[in-house]
Every structure is written in C-alpha cells, then in structure tokens.
Design a protein around this nucleic acid. Structure first.
Lengths: 104, 104
DNA sequence: CTCTCGTTTCGATATTTAGCTAAACATCGT
DNA sequence: ACGATGTTTAGCTAAATATCGAAACGAGAG
C-alpha cells in the first residue's frame, strides 16, 4: 500500500505509467522519452516493479514493461472505497494499524 | 496531484485520514492517538492541509479537522480514470507534461 | 491576567530520495 | 567473440523528510 503511493508520488514514475497506458513498451523506448540517466531510469523501474504497478517481461535482448492496470485500480479504488465512498460503515481492510490502544 | 500522493505516502498521515473518516476531530484528539510529538503532528497536519485533504476549522480554542472526502475521491478516482479504467481512449487531464518532445 | 490548545520556529540529527558518472555484468542475438 | 540492451554496484552530491526537545507565540476561554 505504502509502496504504491510511494511509487505514485514521483512525477517521473507517474509519467512512465501514463506512457505505459498506451501499451507495453521496452525499457529503452521508455528511457528515450526522459532526460535521466540509465541507472536512474532503472531505479524508477525497480520502484514501479516493487509496487507491482508494472510487469517486466524479457523479450530477447530487451525488457518489455507492462502496466498492471488492475493493481493500480485495486489499490487506489480499494483505498478510496475503504473511506466509505458511498458506503458509510465500511471498515474494510485497514492498511495501517493504530499507534495507541483505542483508550477503550 | 503530487501533493496528494505525497501526503498519502506516509502511514501516519493515512492513519489520520482514516481516523477522520469517522467524523471531524480536534487536533488534540487526533494527536492523542499517536506517539509522535506535537510539532511532528502539526507538520503532518500541515501536509494534509496543503494537499487539501483536510479542512481546519477553528472552534474556540481548539482546531477541528474535517476530512475532505470529495477531494480525496476526485484525486484518486480522477487519476485512475485517466488511465482508461473502463474507458480506453481517454486522455483526460494529463497531470504531468512529457520530458522530451514526442519525437514526432 | 493566566491557562489551554495548537502552531511555529530553532537547532539538531538521521533517513530517504533523486540524481550523476563510471564501470562491471548478465543476456541474448549475430 | 562482439555488440546491444538493461540491470546493478560503487561512490558521491544535494535536497527533502521525519523525527526530536525546548521554547516562543497567537487566539480564546475563564
């Protein structure tokens, strides 16, 4: 959960996802659209991979990245939904645990 | 946009929002549920305020925080929606501008 | 005036993050 | 073996974050 928001909190990574929304693309193809160095791009890819927002598929000598739309959707929609967006008393899956005891 | 994901990327702030989903609460009431210092809590509140996810209302000597559900919803749902979640060719409002020219 | 609530500032530290260059590496295709 | 594609590591900035304690400060309530 944190990892998704973390990944999404960087503009470059959001741009990568938006690029990917048009379809799968190789790492090189994506990197070509940005001004950053290769290692930096690889790091961004790693963050996106770890958040499970993209899937890396090895195709020959290149790596094809796929947007995992369903993961993105489920994470964000699920989060919003847990806020009772339309359903009041919905506790749903609490992603975080409280700090102190509810003081009863 | 960035500010929303930024705000959401911190567990403490997410917990604050989840607390607030039960209804408005004073800063002190909220702070009492966390182990962090007052200045730190105030900082978190400031981040949430800046992301426009909460509204601070001065009531007497205390400050009541309200969750801005609509803002949270619109931000996240809007973002997801821009990914064609259900509508393929939907460019929608691009929150980020590309780095390089589209190479035509 | 004093007390309470909450914010803000000060000074300090620790961690994380984004970024770079350079070089090494693993894979794969030719 | 060689060249291309990516990832990873190393080593290093620079900036942002998160945290603290202590103290000052503004606004209201009594």
């Amino acid at each position: 959960m944190s990892s998704v928001f973390k990944a999404l909190s960087d503009p470059t990574r959001r741009r990568v996802l938006q690029l990917l929304r048009a379809g799968p693309m190789s790492a090189g193809e994506i990197a070509a659209r940005f001004e950053v160095s290769k290692p930096t791009m690889s790091a961004h890819f790693a963050v996106l991979r770890e958040a499970d927002l993209v899937h890396a598929e090895k195709a020959g000598k290149s790596v094809i990245y796929h947007l995992k739309l369903s993961v993105l959707e489920e994470a964000l929609l699920g989060f919003v939904h847990s806020f009772g967006a339309g359903a009041e008393g919905s506790r749903a899956v609490p992603d975080d645990i409280p700090d102190k005891e509810p003081a009863t």
